[in-house]
Design a protein around this nucleic acid. Structure first.
Length: 243
DNA sequence: ATACATGTTGGAGC
DNA sequence: GGCTCCAACATGTA
């Protein structure tokens, strides 16, 4: 469920509840929320992997982390972490992180950092990267302040696509590679979105979870790299280490 | 069956 | 204070 494009799919799927009044709400979240019954959902927004249910004066943030799921007009056996029922249907969130966000979302969220947002700014992303020359490229792509919405699959596929080794440092990247990094993070995210909608995402993976490099036909390296020690697949033959 | 995974947070320890 | 490491969370899939 988690990477940015999946949250965009959720947002689109819930459009029918926009402007609708909640007739019942609940769930086993320990987060204390305002009384929701009778309130209208003003909008659904997303910032990277975060899903935002917007009300007048506050929002509920849903983050699916690793195991989160949801059902629309259906229920699983498990107790929902949060559910909202409307006259025209219901949404159930399971095993997700819930937070109450108070205040102006435009002040809290930098929309230009979200790779899926129309306000995304490649120039700002490049600027943030240039300010951190020692950062590893594998960490840079996972950095939600720079590439909000990019996750481990997109990271692996982008690095393979632009032929850059995950342990390259940002400062050592040639300008063309830095530009390609920023550009492909967005391009791949939108391709991910289309493939995911067609339930054919996995068949397009060239590096993630793969055994052999489709370019050079040598075995992929598979190591836990970067600050988060996240699973990384890469080809030491075709992905150049700039450092 | 066992291991592993599209993620983040917060605390311990240095 | 900052950095890194690690546990915790909790469930479907291979």
């Amino acid at each position: 469920m988690p990477e940015g494009p999946s949250i965009v799919i959720l947002k689109e799927a819930l459009a029918k509840f926009k402007g609708k009044k909640i007739i019942e709400a609940g769930g086993n979240t320990k987060v204390v929320l305002p009384e929701l019954e009778g309130l209208k959902v003003i909008d659904f927004k997303s910032w990277g992997k975060q899903f935002l249910i917007c009300f007048k004066g506050f929002a509920i943030r849903v983050h699916f982390l690793l195991f989160g799921t949801y059902r629309i007009d259906e229920r699983k056996d498990a107790k929902p972490r949060l559910f909202l029922r409307f006259a025209n249907g219901e949404i159930n969130f399971y095993t997700s992180s819930i937070q109450l966000i108070e205040g102006d979302l435009d002040e809290i969220y930098d929309w230009t950092a979200d790779v899926m947002n129309p306000l995304w700014s490649a120039a700002k992303a490049r600027k943030k990267l240039k300010a951190a020359p020692d950062m590893l490229v594998c960490d840079a792509l996972m950095n939600q302040q720079v590439f909000s919405g990019v996750g481990n699959i997109i990271k692996n596929e982008v690095l393979f696509r632009i032929k850059v080794h995950p342990l390259s440092t940002i400062g050592a990247l040639p300008a063309a590679k830095l530009n390609a990094l920023v550009k492909e993070a967005v391009v791949y995210s939108f391709e991910f979105l289309e493939w995911k909608k067609k339930f054919e995402l996995k068949k397009h993976w060239l590096a993630y979870n793969q055994k052999t490099c489709p370019r050079d036909h040598v075995p992929f390296k598979r190591k836990d790299l970067g600050k988060g020690r996240r699973r990384t697949f890469y080809c030491e033959s075709c992905q150049v280490n700039y450092s």
